[in-house]
């Protein structure tokens, strides 16, 4: 347990000690800021009452950030340690493979949450100066963040897996991006299949990330979606663990 805590702390520290962590946060803040501008202009013109979080979500910056952040945060996790050789010193200490995987995932997750915090500032600003009735619903903000965290967990676990497969950070990032975009597009595929009763359409509709995130942003929390996201996250972490262990049976 000590090892897990020690490792998580170090992993998290590398984000904040190195320059990269701040660059990622700055880039994320910039994109959030852009969507904030769009949001403000909408607030000024649009009279229809729409939750602010939903407006935030409706700009494509949100997805850009989500799809790009995961590869950038996770590409370093295993690939860098493998290429620099520290993976060898790490794995020859009495730590469990599971602890290594968990520490890296948890650290990436915490950093990811920190990255999204500036958005909270934007929302608070809207709340403070909005004259519209019911401008900001904190319940919707909560469910939006829940969606961001669940979706982030899924994409980061994907990234962990990709990073554990290779010693090249570039390859890890590309694989994560491709897997993420594929997963994202699956939901749209469901619309293309006309017969709604068939199982492929039903399965695909469970992966309609765009639609599901939309629900979260409106304050709708669907437990089925939560289960799907959580189990996919666990599944990819399991694959990561197998990839880390693979050196023992390859």
């Amino acid at each position: 347990m000590t090892a897990l805590f020690t490792l998580t702390r170090r992993e998290l520290a590398t984000f904040f000690v190195s320059f990269t962590g701040y660059v990622i946060i700055a880039a994320a803040t910039f994109l959030v800021g852009l969507s904030f501008i769009v949001l403000l202009s909408k607030l000024g013109t649009d009279a229809s009452p729409m939750p602010v979080t939903e407006m935030f979500y409706s700009t494509y910056f949100f997805w850009l950030l989500l799809l790009l952040a995961a590869p950038i945060i996770t590409m370093r996790l295993f690939a860098l340690e493998k290429s620099s050789g520290t993976f060898e010193t790490l794995m020859t200490t009495p730590v469990r493979d599971l602890h290594v995987v968990l520490a890296k995932f948890v650290a990436a997750m915490l950093f990811y949450v920190v990255m999204w915090l500036p958005m909270l500032g934007c929302l608070a600003l809207v709340q403070r100066y909005s004259t519209q009735p019911g401008g900001l619903d904190w319940g919707a903000v909560g469910s939006t963040y829940l969606g961001i965290i669940l979706l982030g967990g899924l994409f980061l676990s994907l990234g962990c897996f990709a990073s554990a497969l290779t010693r090249s950070q570039m390859v890890a990032a590309m694989v994560t991006l491709v897997l993420g975009v594929t997963l994202f597009s699956l939901g749209f595929l469901a619309d293309q299949i006309p017969a709604t009763g068939h199982w492929p359409a039903q399965v695909l509709s469970r992966f309609a990330l765009f639609q599901q995130m939309h629900d979260f942003a409106r304050g709708v929390v669907d437990t089925r979606t939560i289960v799907v996201y959580l189990s996919l996250t666990v599944f990819f972490l399991f694959l990561t663990l197998r990839a880390v262990e693979s050196r023992r049976w390859r």
């Binding site: 020690t6 170090r10 590398t14 000690v17 050789g85 060898e88 010193t89 200490t93």
Partner: peptide
Amino acid sequence: YMPENNPLHHEMRVREYLKFRARLKG
């Protein structure tokens, strides 16, 4: 065990690194 080419975490400080390693080793 010290592997070939002595891989280290280059962004860490000496004492911090050794403490981290000692804690990892239980």
